[in-house]
């Protein structure tokens, strides 16, 4: 029983990575209608920025904040430069652009920082804590707490601030938003920047466990995409819950289902998706909508 509990908790731990990436993907999708395949590698770049600053002798939390700021700026710039020219095009075009960003950015990261995996010291120290009989490292707990706070902040931002409401308005109905003198273009750029920041939180805070390498976010990206599908691309809460569910499911399956193991863990999210979509095609938290021609 304790073991099961232990597995669930550490599954939740990695679930937070998928949850925050999935949230970032949702933010971008709601704003620009693009499924951003480059979200993972953008987070990787943030982790590298933090790693570089820390190895130059900067304290972790300062590097963390600077990496977030840099990610915000780069995210907004990417929207301005690469997405703006194809704004409002077909999803296929959008997808091609983000796939191009994925392979381009990944290569650029590898060219700048090299292929070898790097280590980032955990800011929470090497201790461990006992939670109801399960043993969690301070890093696991601390990282989960930081991501949780980020998710709550993001939720509050979209619910309670004028800027957040404006961004939602611009995403939901650009034409009406424009009539209310909302600068839609700027809101979309902000959305990308914000998404990049949320992704960066996950990238940097989980870097000590994942190791810093160009491919560090590859499988997380897949699980995040799966999580967003599971929760429904329109639902921010859904994406987060989807990420946590998949984290636990993947962990339990690789431990208890014979023949899966860590190399085939990726089977799990897609099996879950198949099951869910057979019952609820709109995703767990999505709304079924009727379509008009």
């Amino acid at each position: 029983m304790t073991e099961l509990w232990q597995q669930i908790l550490s599954g939740l731990g990695s679930g937070f990575i998928y949850a925050s990436l999935a949230l970032a993907i949702c933010l971008v999708f709601q704003g620009t209608g693009a499924v951003n395949f480059a979200q993972g590698v953008m987070a990787t770049a943030s982790a590298y920025v933090a790693w570089t600053l820390v190895t130059r002798g900067m304290p972790f939390w300062l590097a963390f904040v600077l990496a977030l700021v840099a990610s915000f700026i780069v995210g907004a710039l990417i929207e301005r430069v690469f997405i703006r020219p194809v704004e409002g095009s077909s999803p296929l075009v959008m997808l091609t652009v983000t796939v191009a960003l994925l392979i381009g950015l990944q290569a650029v990261v590898a060219l700048i920082w090299g292929d070898d995996p790097q280590q980032l010291e955990s800011p929470f120290g090497g201790g461990s804590v006992e939670v109801l009989g399960a043993r969690l490292t301070a890093q696991q707990l601390g990282a989960a707490a930081v991501v949780l706070v980020t998710l709550l902040l993001a939720g509050a931002f979209f619910r309670f601030t004028t800027l957040g409401l404006r961004m939602r308005a611009a995403a939901q109905n650009p034409a009406s938003a424009r009539l209310l003198s909302i600068d839609v273009g700027r809101m979309l750029a902000l959305g990308w920047g914000l998404a990049a920041t949320v992704g960066a939180v996950a990238g940097v805070i989980f870097a000590p466990t994942l190791g810093v390498s160009p491919a560090m976010m590859d499988s997380s990206l897949l699980l995040a995409l799966a999580a967003a599908t599971l929760g429904g691309f329109e639902s921010r809460v859904g994406a987060v819950v989807g990420g946590l569910v998949l984290g636990v499911a993947a962990n339990l399956a690789s431990r208890y289902v014979p023949g899966i193991g860590s190399d085939l863990q990726l089977v799990v999210p897609f099996a879950v998706i198949f099951l869910v979509l057979l019952l609820r095609p709109q995703g767990l938290f999505g709304r079924a909508s009727s379509v008009r021609a």
């Binding site: 690469f82 652009v97 191009a100 392979i103 290569a107 650029v108 060219l111």
Partner: peptide, 10 residues
């Protein structure tokens, strides 16, 4: 090669 693919695609 990846960079060229990306640039060509864009």
């Amino acid at each position: 090669q990846q960079v060229v693919y990306a640039a060509a695609l864009l």
